[in-house]
């Protein structure tokens, strides 16, 4: 898979990893205090009302951690937005409850997106009615389809195979049936497919 997907997955690992450490720390401290200072063992509580140094520390350190997460996440997001030059362009029209893909040569296909292996693909997305959202989990790509607006997404069609496309924005009765297949094929197979009549 492309660098974009790897960067995003790294961002996931980074954020979730730190979160697990923090959660474990908080939970164990909490349980430890509950047991260690239980009333039967510690009938006389201390009178501690705060400690501004400690409070400052646990404000600033989380702030730094949060900012680093923001940075990692933002960087991985840029990959999703910067379409490489020479990407092939496909128009996507969403409607209740199907997807229509329009290829450069004028070929159209419904609920099936065929692209050649190894190419960067730019999808320009719009809707014919309500809001939908084009979601390709395998490529970490999602973008809303809004009537009267053109949005875009891109992905690197890395390895041949079939991938799922879902509608992620609730759009009515058959929202959960509004799926399509992304088929990545070898270049010559793609050419042959493109030439077949509609």
């Amino acid at each position: 898979m492309g660098d974009v997907v790897k960067n995003i997955d790294n961002a996931f690992i980074y954020i979730i990893g730190i979160s697990v450490v923090l959660l474990t720390g908080i939970t164990f401290t909490m349980i430890f205090f509950t047991v260690k200072y239980r009333r039967s063992k510690n009938p006389e509580p201390a009178d501690i009302r705060g400690n501004w140094k400690l409070e400052l520390v646990w404000t600033i350190i989380p702030l730094l951690i949060a900012l680093s997460m923001f940075y990692v996440g933002w960087n991985s997001y840029l990959g999703l937005r910067n379409v490489p030059k020479g990407a092939m362009e496909i128009d996507v029209l969403a409607m209740q409850f199907s997807w229509l893909f329009k290829y450069p040569g004028g070929r159209e296909s419904a609920n099936l997106l065929v692209v050649p292996e190894g190419k960067a693909v730019k999808l320009t997305v719009t809707s014919d009615d309500v809001i939908h959202s084009l979601y390709i989990p395998s490529f970490r790509v999602k973008i809303d389809a809004v009537k009267g607006m053109k949005t875009y997404a891109w992905f690197q069609a890395a390895r041949a195979g079939n991938y799922d496309i879902f509608c992620a924005e609730y759009c009515g009765l058959d929202h959960s049936k509004m799926s399509a297949i992304l088929r990545i094929v070898k270049m010559d197979e793609y050419r042959r497919w493109l030439e077949k009549k509609n």
């Binding site: 949060a66 997460m69 990692v72 991985s76 997001y77 999703l80």
Partner: peptide, 25 residues
């Protein structure tokens, strides 16, 4: 504290733009 921490920490996953795109909705 335990459950809210999980909720808050997974909120960090959603707050970051790159990861949000994948798990949004």
């Amino acid at each position: 504290v335990y459950l809210f921490s999980i909720g808050g920490l997974t909120g960090l996953v959603l707050g970051s733009a790159g990861t949000n795109v994948h798990v949004h909705d």
